[in-house]
């Protein structure tokens, strides 16, 4: 069930002297089973955009369509939409509050008004999806590691069985190992569980490695939209916006400047290695 933004405009303090347009005519479609990364410099509208996806903000004009139906239409069940599109904020571990992990994960489905057996079943499944077994049930969410806390927080959203999972910088502040584990997990939620992933990130290396599609926002408009390989070909444009390209792409660009005939549109270590070795054959 696709989630579509159609000519979305959003302004803070709309209609006042302080009006500030944050999203300008944004049209995008997100699909299930697709890992979409949103990148953009600070203030480009990334967070504002994702807050539209589960109706924390309502567009000043434009349409939000879920499965073809206009979410803004009168009588639309907006509460139901919030269960279909799960939002994981920055530093979600700050939102854990129950004394025990399992109870915390149950909070979402319980509020959906499900019978207790189903609440428990959904919470159990969600914990399984993030790789936490029953031995975690009665632990306090405050005595586990940072990476595990994030998993619990994500499980709390997954327990509502969303089709889409929207994450704002989920790996910020985690160490390299914790970051890799978490991103592998999110990739798996997309590939194996078929969730649509929409992930905001500042790390070009991460999005190059994990995303199927990258959307570049700047000043509230979509500047680029394509596969990582397509997007990172626009190095100059990205640098001008205050973004960058993956490190290995920088190496290729440097070699090109020095007069070598290399493809500067590569982003992975393996393919870059092959391209460089070609120079020596």
């Amino acid at each position: 069930m696709p989630l579509t933004l159609k000519n979305i405009n959003y302004a803070y303090n709309a209609g006042t002297a302080l009006e500030k347009k944050v999203l300008k005519d944004v049209s995008l479609t997100f699909r299930e089973g697709e890992f979409t990364a949103i990148i953009g410099p600070t203030g480009s509208g990334k967070s504002t955009l994702i807050q539209h996806l589960d109706l924390l903000l309502t567009a000043t004009s434009g349409e939000l369509l879920f499965n073809g139906e206009n979410v803004y239409a009168e009588g639309y069940d907006r509460k139901a939409l919030r269960s279909r599109v799960g939002l994981v904020f920055q530093y979600p571990e700050y939102q854990l509050f129950e004394p025990e992990i399992f109870t915390d994960v149950c909070f979402g489905p319980k509020n959906q008004g499900l019978p207790e057996a189903e609440v428990h079943a959904n919470a159990r499944e969600a914990m399984k999806l993030v790789g936490l077994d029953e031995s975690y049930d009665t632990l306090s969410p405050f005595e586990i590691s940072g990476g595990q806390k994030r998993r619990v927080a994500i499980a709390g959203v997954l327990a509502m069985k969303p089709d889409f999972l929207v994450l704002d910088e989920p790996a910020a502040g985690l160490d390299p190992q914790g970051k890799k584990e978490l991103l592998d997990l999110i990739r798996g939620l997309c590939t194996q569980a078929g969730k649509g992933i929409i992930l905001v990130s500042h790390s070009m290396d991460d999005v190059a490695e994990y995303a199927d599609r990258i959307i570049v926002l700047k000043d509230g408009t979509v500047r680029l939209d394509g596969t990582p390989h397509e997007v990172f070909r626009h190095r100059e444009e990205l640098v001008q916006m205050g973004l960058s390209v993956p490190k290995v792409t920088e190496v290729l660009c440097g070699l090109k400047t020095r007069g070598f005939d290399v493809d500067t549109g590569l982003i992975g270590i393996a393919e870059t290695k092959e391209e460089i070795l070609r120079l020596f054959r």
């Binding site: 390299p176 490190k247 290995v248 393996a270």
Partner: peptide
């Protein structure tokens, strides 16, 4: 120790492994 090598170091090591 749960750390990583910088991406460029990873690339350089991969090239070394191929004989450069």
């Amino acid at each position: 120790l749960g750390m990583q090598l910088p991406k460029v170091t990873q690339l350089a090591n991969a090239l070394t492994a191929e004989g450069l």
